[in-house]
Design a protein around this nucleic acid. Structure first.
Lengths: 213, 213
DNA sequence: GTCTATATCTCGATAGAC
DNA sequence: GTCTATCGAGATATAGAC
């Protein structure tokens, strides 16, 4: 494979990557359905027909964007698991890595969050459902191991905690500003502070507030 | 105003409410943009043109659905605030009321979560942004008062905790099943267990895990 | 209150010139 | 690699018959 003709990754250089980056921004800001190929072409300073020299279809663009992002993200997760840090520090590392992915690839995360439900119904996007399962297994393993070795409270509903953590981490893409004062690590630290003081072994000693009657 | 001709609320009886309920379900499941007026008409067993006897436009249907829902929801919030329960129990009550709204009006909550960003850009949906501000003020007041009187940790970033709570509560509409084994109160209780053990005054005594170096 | 029929618009995608 | 020109599908919405 020559240097010129090699497959260019979504984050690489060149015209193709440039167009994908523009499409990703529009898909994230306006939504995949609302964004027209004319919008993407206009953002690139060309006409809609010209886009089809680079891509088969609008779907292909979303496909390439999501594949590249998910491969990268789950590669990072695999590295963390491989490091074998134990439940608590693995949880911290996965949360930090997730917030950092929001920092580095906000558009891709937004597309993953907002469009995956619809796109995954198409055959070509079947890998989205597979990644969701993979992500769920990752989290439930961390939580279950943490409970087993006493790092997390024994009375946790692991399935429910998994959903809370997943949702809270990813939904932050709606308000997180990569150029703002709060860094991804700042947000991750504050988030872990809230989460862990609830999940960690020792129970809160305060009696639960009850209506007086 | 006669009984026959009075304005029928979105949750009332009659053909109009029936059509709105069908539209709400489709808007929630497929999204507002993807759902066609033909889809709504077909679900009602009529043809698309007939829908325009009841409603001006597809937008009008979403408008009526969202207005009715938000009026109801914020009426409930106002009642809670008026009861003056103190920060901690007010927080609990608002969380419970929110999960109960997901239970009773899952489609409306889903529309509010998924479509508000786009719809609120239109003039007729300006009230969505106003409600968002109202909701933010409600939460930040609860949190700030709780910090002031020692019910919540003094080192909280109130803005960030507000976002955390807001997102986690509403995003549950993505997976919560009104017909499932977990009731809204069950979910609220478990969620409050996680949240409060992190927010409540006393700090977790465990030392924070640190990389060994 | 619903149907028939259709006007009008915009979309994704294609073919061929340059 | 981009433009010109356009096709065909499907969308919202309308007007008038029943």
């Amino acid at each position: 494979m020559s240097t010129r003709e090699r497959q260019v990754p979504a984050t690489g250089s060149g015209r193709r990557a440039e167009l994908l980056a523009l499409a990703a921004r529009l898909f994230a800001e306006r939504g995949f359905v609302v964004t027209t190929v004319r919008d993407i072409a206009e953002a690139a300073g060309i006409l809609s027909g010209s886009l089809y020299h680079h891509f088969d279809s609008k779907e292909s663009m979303a496909d390439e964007i999501l594949r590249g992002f998910l491969d990268e993200l789950f590669g990072t997760y695999a590295d963390i698991v491989k490091a074998d840090l134990g439940p608590r520090r693995t949880l911290e590392a996965v949360v930090v890595a997730s917030f950092e992915s929001i920092h580095r690839r906000p558009h891709e995360v937004a597309i993953y969050q907002n469009e995956a439900k619809h796109l995954s119904q198409l055959d070509r996007f079947a890998y989205i459902a597979e990644r969701n399962v993979e992500f769920r297994d990752l989290w439930k393993t961390i939580l279950a191991e943490g409970v087993a070795e006493g790092a997390f409270r024994a009375d946790l509903d692991v399935e429910l905690v998994y959903r809370f953590v997943r949702d809270t981490v990813w939904v932050a893409v709606r308000w997180y500003n990569p150029d703002g004062a709060l860094s991804a690590d700042d947000v991750a630290e504050q988030y872990l502070g809230i989460l862990l003081d609830g999940i960690a072994t020792r129970r809160r000693p305060m009696k639960k507030a009850r209506p007086t009657h």
